[in-house]
Simulated scan of single mutants.
Amino acid sequence: MKIAFAGKGGSGKTTLSALFTRYLATSGLPVVAIDADINQNLGAALGAPAGELARLPPLGTHVADIKELLRGDNPRIGSAAEMVKTTPPGPGSLLLAASGPNPLHERFGLRTPDGATLMVTGPFGADDLGVACYHSKVGAAELYLNHLVDAPGEYVVVDMTAGADSFASGLFTRFDVTFLVAEPTVRGVGVYRQYADYARDHGVTIRVIGNKVQDESDVAFLREHVGDALAACFGHSAFVRAMEKGRHAPLEELEGDNAKTLAWMRDTVDSTPQDWARFTRQTVEFHLRNARAWAQSATGADLEAQVDPFFVLGPEALAEQRRAAAAR
């Protein structure tokens, strides 16, 4: 299951991304965490050693290598240079599993103290100023998600950049559930309204997690403004304050009510059905939009021809890839 954490800056989405990742990992479940925020803080929040984080190769600076790997021997893609962040997989493309052997995890992943696999899109560097946008780095995560076949009981947690930046591409449709982290303030619920409005016609499942909730009046405020989208609330936490100071205590020390919130979040995710046909359809939709808007002129290639109209991403496609590999 693919899960996004979104919200305004300062809402606590990185903290909740980290806590949810830790909750899944300490339960013995396979979980991949991706830091796709322009402020790269997820690794530190997961307790990864600073030295190891400094050596972790960012996805965003190896996009050409990732494209070359993922295109495989797909006859519709002439070269890695003809791939863009929305290029969909097809027969011959390399499909990725969420657990088990995965070349991207092996090259770009770091095992966290709790057992999750962490990957990062990378920081916005000095060389990027004035000449690039952060979407060029997040595009690597979009390519990964477009080629990933995750099964129930496998989790990919993505800490998104703040606000509604993910709507600049089809990235917002890549998730089974989007957790919108909202404080009980007018600004906090404003990002939810923006997300819900943009996503309305795309079947995106958005659930609000109230954060920094102090009392029932805060819950009532959130309920008034987001209605049934409110899935759970996370209260003020001494555990989180210590975590933000660099102390990563065992998750068993998390306050009982907040631990229940993490369990409710997992229940929300597990009860959401995966729809591979829709996922594939939306991949193609946004690829064609990008192709016609800018990508075909930028690459000089017919990117619309990259779409195989009969291909559907999902477990059957991954199984077929494995059968073909075994037969070689």
Rank of each mutant, 00 (worst) to 15 (best):
S79H: 06
N102Q: 05
A80W: 02
L104N: 02
S169H: 12
F167R: 09
T121V: 15
Y144H: 13
G122H: 05
V138L: 10
A97L: 09
N146G: 12
K137P: 11
N211C: 03
G72M: 08
E82S: 13
D73M: 06
R193V: 08
A97E: 15
L110D: 09
G188L: 00
D128R: 08
T117A: 09
P101C: 11
T173Q: 11
M119G: 04
D150A: 15
L143Y: 01
N146K: 13
G188M: 00
D114G: 03
A116I: 07
E68G: 05
P184E: 00
A196M: 08
L96C: 05
G188Y: 00
D150H: 15
P123Q: 12
P103W: 14
R111F: 14
E68S: 14
G109K: 07
K85E: 14
D150P: 04
G78V: 02
N74R: 01
G122N: 11
R187I: 07
D128K: 12
M119P: 06
N146F: 08
G78L: 04
G90N: 03
G115H: 04
G153C: 05
A140N: 13
R207Y: 01
S166A: 15
L69G: 01
G122W: 07
V131Y: 10
G72T: 11
T173E: 08
G109H: 07
G130C: 14
V138E: 10
D73A: 12
A80N: 01
N74T: 04
P152L: 00
L143M: 06
L145P: 01
A196L: 05
